[in-house]
């Protein structure tokens, strides 16, 4: 049995393989769990079938556990947003894009341009949770993609940036409607009507609470310079 705290929510996870325990090492806690997650062999099989390439049972068990965790998030004013989140000057920026667009590459460019001012929150699957005052906070989680970039921290989320490949580097405002369409493809919606409805309401709230942009970018340092000039300068 594994007990972890992610985004300030305590989960107890019944698991079989050691993979998930190692992965969650920096999230262990002692608190009273809000939810117990059980991963069945069927859930593991399902992840295996959905995966591309050869993946271990332990890895699939961990993915299945996170999928189960995501189903409880809306009850805690939270949702899983598939994105790469960095922290600069105490504020978080989430980069979202379809797989293969170059989120990790873009973040590396920020590190190269700004150095140690840039810290990673989570490279792939952070949780965004609303604080009581309505501020969305981006939390690191043990599930962080193949690079494993993550820290167990929570940082107020300033902006969500949709990344698209471009011939030149430019950053534009993004309407709430466009953001809705982009981001609906980057969340786990849940499996029941109730879960899906709650998750969509959470996404609507998120879209209303943050600065939204679209960045057309090349894989060069100029892309990070253009983005960081626009995102960091007009904030207090």
């Amino acid at each position: 049995m594994l007990k972890i705290s992610v985004a300030g929510i305590v989960f107890e996870i019944e698991h079989t393989y050691p993979h998930i325990a190692a992965q969650c090492a920096s999230y262990l806690c002692d608190g009273e769990p809000s939810h117990t997650v059980r991963v069945t062999p069927e859930m593991i099989l399902r992840e295996k079938q959905a995966a591309t390439g050869e993946v271990s049972d332990g890895y699939c068990e961990s993915l299945a556990a996170y999928r189960e965790i995501s189903r409880y998030l809306a009850r805690h004013d939270a949702l899983l947003l598939h994105s790469a989140v960095i922290e600069v000057n105490g504020r978080a920026i989430a980069f979202s894009a379809r797989s293969g667009t170059g989120k990790s590459t873009h973040i590396r460019l920020w590190k190269r341009v700004l150095g140690d001012c840039v810290r990673i929150v989570n490279g792939d699957k952070p949780i965004i949770r609303f604080r009581n005052d309505g501020t969305p906070i981006a939390y690191g989680t043990p599930w962080a993609g193949k690079e494993g970039w993550q820290r167990n921290v929570g940082v107020p989320l300033q902006s969500i940036v949709i990344l698209r490949r471009g011939e030149t580097d430019r950053i534009l405002p993004l309407s709430k409607e466009e953001a809705a369409l982009e981001l609906l493809g980057q969340i786990l919606i849940g499996e029941t009507e109730g879960e899906a409805a709650a998750t969509m309401e959470m996404l609507d709230r998120l879209i209303a609470s943050v600065d939204l942009r679209v960045l057309y970018c090349t894989p060069t340092e100029e892309a990070a310079r253009v983005a960081c000039r626009a995102l960091l300068e007009n904030k207090e």
Binding site: E177, E191, E193, M200, L203, D204
Partner: peptide, 13 residues
Amino acid sequence: REVGGRSVAVAIG
């Protein structure tokens, strides 16, 4: 549901 001012229908299950 309304998401970002747009009415969206999402399939579940």
